[in-house]
């Protein structure tokens, strides 16, 4: 029973990843797209915890989500926000 629930959770997380990736492509406002991309990275960190590699999850949460989002926001604040 527990295994089935874990599988359902994994499938839901992966579904969320695909939805986030499509949403990033569709959103016209760049700042909103970056925030959706940050949630994409956080869900990806949870997926890697599910795949039993906690160090990759930690680096993804720190670098792939935190630093990349900060750099993107810095670049958007130097350029324009609308697509």
């Amino acid at each position: 029973m527990v295994d089935v629930l874990t599988e359902v959770l994994n499938v839901l997380l992966l579904l969320f990843l695909v939805v986030c990736a499509i949403a990033v492509a569709q959103i016209r406002d760049m700042l909103s797209a970056v925030i959706v991309f940050a949630s994409f990275g956080l869900i990806m960190a949870i997926v890697w915890q599910q795949l039993s590699s906690p160090d990759v999850a930690m680096v993804e949460a720190a670098l792939g989500t935190g630093v990349t989002t900060l750099l993107l926001i810095a670049a958007i604040s130097k350029t324009r926000r609308a697509e």
Binding site: D55, M58, A62, L63, G66, V67, L70, I73, S77
Partner: peptide
């Protein structure tokens, strides 16, 4: 534990950048 110099440094640097931003 998982992590180490690289992940910890990235977390620490991100907090500094967060305040500056």
């Amino acid at each position: 534990s998982p992590g180490g110099g690289f992940s910890g440094g990235a977390i620490f640097g991100a907090s500094l950048v967060l305040v500056a931003l």
